[in-house]
Every structure is written in structure tokens, then in C-alpha cells.
């Protein structure tokens, strides 16, 4: 909390702001677990884990609703200003993105039952695992940038989004090759391709979170700053 070294005069307000950040962290943890589990289920073709993961998304949705309500009530009751206002508004954004990542995890888990594991080569799964690890790392770092209010980490996350995109393109080529090799692979490969695409989307949401963190810290729009040359991505 580099920006707000001083405690708020109204301590209950301070407590609410802290609680909001804590809820975001908690929700981030839930989402990370969901992505990890979904990937595991996909790779190990673990139908139970898949079901469990899909079910767990409900908790993420509830968490988002909770954060929204908290944020709205704080806006109504406290009329937040400046840093506090940005804190609350970006918390709403971040919660929204996290909820979408949660949806992605659910989507991944649901695909498990459509994929015939016997036929798919382990190599393909490796690509998915790699993709998932990269997306998770992005999510983790973006959440770090939010809770630590660190604009540099946020910039870093945005920078690395290209890596995720590049990985997705290469996976896409790979899947295409497999499909051309053996048309029986088409169904499975298409499912896995969607999984990869979803994970790529999760990476995008991570950059959104980083963007929100950047706004929280600096009060500026990250892309406007990039366009105007105030910050450099690479």
C-alpha cells in the first residue's frame, strides 16, 4: 500500500478498504486453483476433478457479487475520492475479470468429458500445460501488481501477454498439423484448441487486471500512456 501510507481517519472505512483488497486476493486464489484443477483434469482426464472444478465456479461468482455489493455500498456511504475511489472502482473491474477467468476454468473442465484421451498424444497435452502455466503466472503477477499497487509489475504483465499470444499461435499450428495428419483427431484437437484459446483469453483478462492495477496506482489509463509514449512496453 505504497500510495496510502496514512491510515484513514475513519477506521471502519480503512477496514472496509482492506477487506475489499483481501476479498480480491481470496477470489484470485480461488480462480488460480480453478485453472490449475481444470488443467489437471484435462491432462489426467480426471472426470471427478472436472466436475468438482465446474461446480466450484459458483463460489467465484458469489465472491464477485459480494465484492460488487461491498463496492457499491462503499461508494454510496463513503463517497470515496481520489485513491480510494480508484481502489474501489478497480476492485470492481478486477473482480469482473476474475469472474471471467473462473468461467474459463469451468469451460475447460466441461470439455474433459468430450475428449477421448486414448487417442490424443501426450505432446499435445504438454502444449496445453505449458499454456496453462503461462496464463497462471500472468494471473498471479497481475494480482500481485494489484495488491502491491506496483505499476512495474503491471507493465511487466502486459509485456508478457505477447508470450501467451505467441504460444497460442504455435499451439494452433501444432493442432492444425495433427488434424491434417489424421482426420480422426479433428474432434479432440478442436476441443483442445478451444482450451488453448480459452487460456489465451485468461491471459488477456490478466492484462486487464494489470491495467486496473496500473490505473489504481497512477490514476492513468495504461494504453493512453503507451500511446502517448509516457511508458514503453518493450
Amino acid at each position: 500500500m505504497a500510495n496510502a501510507s496514512n491510515e484513514h481517519i475513519v477506521s471502519s472505512y480503512e477496514d472496509e478498504l482492506t477487506a475489499l483488497t483481501r476479498a480480491i486476493s481470496e477470489m484470485g486464489g480461488m480462480v488460480e486453483v480453478a485453472i490449475t484443477n481444470a488443467t489437471q483434469a484435462l491432462i489426467r482426464v480426471d472426470h471427478d476433478l472436472a466436475k468438482q472444478t465446474a461446480k466450484a465456479d459458483k463460489a467465484v461468482d458469489d465472491m464477485q457479487r459480494y465484492i460488487d455489493e461491498k463496492a457499491v455500498s462503499m461508494i454510496a456511504r463513503r463517497q470515496p475520492m481520489a485513491g480510494d475511489l480508484r481502489h474501489i472502482v478497480s476492485a470492481i473491474h478486477v473482480a469482473n475479470d476474475l469472474e471471467r477467468i473462473g468461467d474459463i476454468a469451468k469451460n475447460l473442465a466441461r470439455r474433459v468429458k468430450h475428449i477421448d484421451s486414448q487417442r490424443v498424444s501426450k505432446q499435445l497435452y504438454n502444449g496445453i500445460r505449458h499454456m496453462s502455466d503461462l496464463a497462471l503466472a500472468q494471473i498471479k503477477r497481475s494480482l500481485d501488481s494489484f495488491t502491491l499497487r506496483d505499476a512495474n509489475i503491471a507493465l511487466d504483465v502486459c509485456r508478457r501477454d505477447d508470450e501467451v499470444d505467441a504460444l497460442y499461435i504455435s499451439l494452433f499450428r501444432e493442432f492444425l498439423t495433427y488434424m491434417m495428419e489424421d482426420p480422426r483427431n479433428i474432434t479432440d484437437c478442436t476441443h483442445l484448441l478451444f482450451c488453448a484459446k480459452n487460456l489465451e483469453r485468461a491471459g488477456d483478462h490478466a492484462t486487464n487486471i494489470a491495467e486496473a492495477a496500473y490505473y489504481l496506482k497512477t490514476g492513468e489509463n495504461l494504453y493512453y500512456d503507451i500511446e502517448s509514449g509516457k511508458v514503453q512496453l518493450n
Binding site: 496514512n6 485513491g83 490514476g219
Partner: peptide
């Protein structure tokens, strides 16, 4: 987005 820390502290009630 006040630039000055004192402003930020004042308007957010710190």
C-alpha cells in the same frame, strides 16, 4: 488523481 500526496490525503480523509 491528485498529484500531490497532501491533496490525496486531505480529500480521502487521511
Amino acid at each position: 488523481n491528485p498529484h500531490h500526496k497532501k491533496t490525496q490525503d486531505y480529500i480521502t480523509g487521511r
